[in-house]
Amino acid sequence: MTTTMETVWHNRIFYLFVLPFAVLTILFGVWPIVLSIIVSFTASATALRPSPTYVGLANYAAILADPAFLASLLRTFLYTALSVAANLSFAFGMAVLLDSALLRHGNLFFRLALFLPVVTPDVAGYVVWRWLFDRSFGAMNAFLDLAGLPEFAGLTTATTAMLSLLIAELWHHAGFYMIIFLANLSIRDRALEEAAQIDGATRGQIWRFVILPQLKPAFIINVVYALIQFLKTFTVVVVMTKGGPNEATNFVSYYAYQLFDQGRYGEATAMASVLFVLVIAISLTLYRLGDRESS
């Protein structure tokens, strides 16, 4: 019977292999997360001292009683719902279009055009979009004017600012969701479709009962990724709106960051915990759902 120590010693080479990875994970993953959770239970003013004052759940109570935080949370949910719906339906539509036999020539060009923004540094992309939407410089309004369409207020009003962020983020992210759909479409069993066609199924029935069920993995992955992605929306806010106009685009990540910047560490980290729990709960629920279906 071997003891744990003997097992470890016997496999020491594997511990050696894993050591650098373990050190980085602990130093820059586990430790900061634990630290963040600890700080969320301390009074902000003492948070960084060697022996901080612990205040229990006071920070959590404070943020849940803060109307600005609740408004920010609601706004984040709204933006996330809209973005997930817009990105996934756009990505799915484009994937179906690019997968069809109609676009055999030049297919690669279209894929590259839609995927290039994914690898474009997000700061650079959003900087360009910020100025495209600008009223005096931007190409957006000059184009609308040329086409005889009404002016788009861009980043200057609440509704259009959120819409502008959504457009810029869709430009940056949708190509990624599209290639997940395309990868799934390309490995589907086409013989099933032929069989269904021979049996007299209509195009709509084939999509509904033969193709879509096979695309479930792509849908689950994309929904999880997109939900996490948009719940955490941050860079686009920093670059394009700074949370404005009038807090209209002040999402949770940015709000937490602002508090951190003001030295309100306890509340900022409490918000981080709330967002963290949301993200974990959503991903686990969806993965469980996916696992149960596929097993």
Partner: peptide, 17 residues
């Protein structure tokens, strides 16, 4: 767990580390 933690919020305690 680390990769699920909101990245921009992880960066803040990383400052302390």
């Amino acid at each position: 767990v680390t990769i699920m933690y909101p990245y921009m919020l992880l960066v803040i305690p990383v400052y302390l580390v």
